[in-house]
Design a protein around this nucleic acid. Sequence first.
DNA 1: TCGGCGTGTTGAAACGTCTTAGCCGAGGAA
DNA 2: TTCCTCGGCTAAGACGTTTCAACACGCCGA
Lengths: 357, 357
Amino acid sequence: MSVDDAEALPERRRRRTDKRHTAGVKAVAAAAGVSLGTVSNVLNRPEVVSPLTRAKVEAAMAALGFVRNESARQLRAGSSRIIAYLMLDAGNPFFTDVAKGVEEAAQAAGLSVFLCNSNEDVDREADYLDLLEQQRVQGILITPIDQNSSRLRKLPSRGTPVVVVDRALDDTEHCSVAVNDVLGGELAISHLLELGHRLIAYVGGPNTIGQVLDRRDGARNALHKAERPATDLIELTTGALTVAEGRGAGQRLAGLPVDRRPTAAFCANDLLALGLLQQCVSLGLRVPEDLAIVGYDDIEYAEAAAVPLTSVRQPRQLLGRTAAELLLDESSNPDHEHQRVIFTPELVVRTSTRGTG
Amino acid sequence: MSVDDAEALPERRRRRTDKRHTAGVKAVAAAAGVSLGTVSNVLNRPEVVSPLTRAKVEAAMAALGFVRNESARQLRAGSSRIIAYLMLDAGNPFFTDVAKGVEEAAQAAGLSVFLCNSNEDVDREADYLDLLEQQRVQGILITPIDQNSSRLRKLPSRGTPVVVVDRALDDTEHCSVAVNDVLGGELAISHLLELGHRLIAYVGGPNTIGQVLDRRDGARNALHKAERPATDLIELTTGALTVAEGRGAGQRLAGLPVDRRPTAAFCANDLLALGLLQQCVSLGLRVPEDLAIVGYDDIEYAEAAAVPLTSVRQPRQLLGRTAAELLLDESSNPDHEHQRVIFTPELVVRTSTRGTG
DNA sequence: TCGGCGTGTTGAAACGTCTTAGCCGAGGAA
DNA sequence: TTCCTCGGCTAAGACGTTTCAACACGCCGA
């Protein structure tokens, strides 16, 4: 039995279980002729090691293709350099814009962002929360489906900071960042009233969504402030905030007798507004002459519609950025106090209410 | 010096460095009156531990709020239960749909997906690749900016499988999944030719993007096959694949003298097509009577446009699902062989070419 | 010559989990 | 009764990194 044979077996075994033959600090240290600690210093505090030694170590790392094992680092050091944003719906441009803001703030702080998509599924949200807690991420940003989830409540007390995005929580466990939707509704309706409209439709639903209700309340407020009767607001309830539902609402709207048909519509989001617009145009109504339309969110496609859409804009990136900054403060500042930030929306007027002038 | 004082100091020190007072396996074992190994067995092989012991351990875990430390698990076990999809642009609905397919396949295999957004930024792509490799994720799906990046090439040899999405690589290191863009271009132009159009515009750019070139080549092929002169294709080159550029192209198109103006346009993606549509309509052209339009990607908003858009649909979710499945095979099947899967696009005909009939 | 200092480097211990070999005791076969 | 088996559990390393007290060395001032 030769020496070769004696070594062949363990070698083969190593190969089978361990697909990654990545060199560790130990191998680098040996190759560079220094100790473990020195390699670690090169990695984490390069300034304390002499230029000569550092060069040797760096050469060894390059030669061996060394890749730091983050699991081990994190286990020992106790801290992760990652934050996560658990999104409600990655397909909705609103949330991807928020995510952009998050990334911006994280990058400035030297952290990385992992995006997770709960896709409006309660179970997936729960699974991701568990996973992220197990990963010991530095913190979690979330637009929750179920804000009262006990899982969500328990996270901060166990050491994972949580910031709630696009929902205002009345709770003392987390920070939250949101936009004033009631005010948004008021802006939209006030604008339409100023243009001389009397009968106005509110298109939105289902009424289980907080945002939908807030925007409707804002609409009612505006009417009230202008001393108009509440009956001037015709509510068309939809089953979801989608383009298809918008088309359905358009059908219903166009079918009303002319004397009872609103001359303007305020939609709870832009997708509804796009559907409404499309259906009304194809049924022969002119926008804005026969029907003025206001959307909500000001997504990119609102401007690209056949008739560019007047819409209530939310500061999406700012929302994400602020949320991330609150998270960073919470995880680094021992005197952190939870805050509830509420941003103000802004009306962007385009052709769908003002005409081509 | 009392006993209390003696213990106070280390206690305070622990608190300061270690914000998370999460109980570990050790604490659970103590609370349940069993050994470390038994707790680990409850976690990973519940069937080998007796029901009575298991119940005790589970009760202890619940009481202490035990959360497994995934870093430690991964360090010891050597494998992660996470795959990542490094997206080119999270704001583009095309990629979020691909991501949905990825999530679907991952969930079926019991894995979780982390989404990362390179945002078409080479540096961020590189940073994320490094990060993911350090995290020792089970594998990486990527729609790369720079397909020839050495970083990308080296990953598989170091043990992190990589699957390239929406790009066909001629390379032997990875699997790749893509869609036949040349064929897509042919479909679009053949459709327009069948409708009797002679002069056709191709709107797309910049010409550094592979997809843009492939679709153009497909368009030329179709013309060639129909024995039409190459000059029947008017190329309008844009600076990007955005709505704004589409509007610019519309302006240019509408400005052409009528006898030299194409009666149809094929756009390299839907955003361009939406911009083109909007501009042409607002300049008084009727769609499709004066100008027929075909887009590419069939994003949700294509159907929601003022004039629903004919578009070339790519099997987006299938793309993501297939890519994830290839990745899973590569990381679990020792006999894995790299593959290059190419899907076939499909033409979805709507009003923008066919009229309301 | 000596103590003291600062700069660079070392070695060993820890982080929390999984794994493996082995231990114990009960029950069955001889 | 003795021996063996087997299910259930324990104890003792790993895993790859960071940290920290200790150390070697050259230098200065006393």
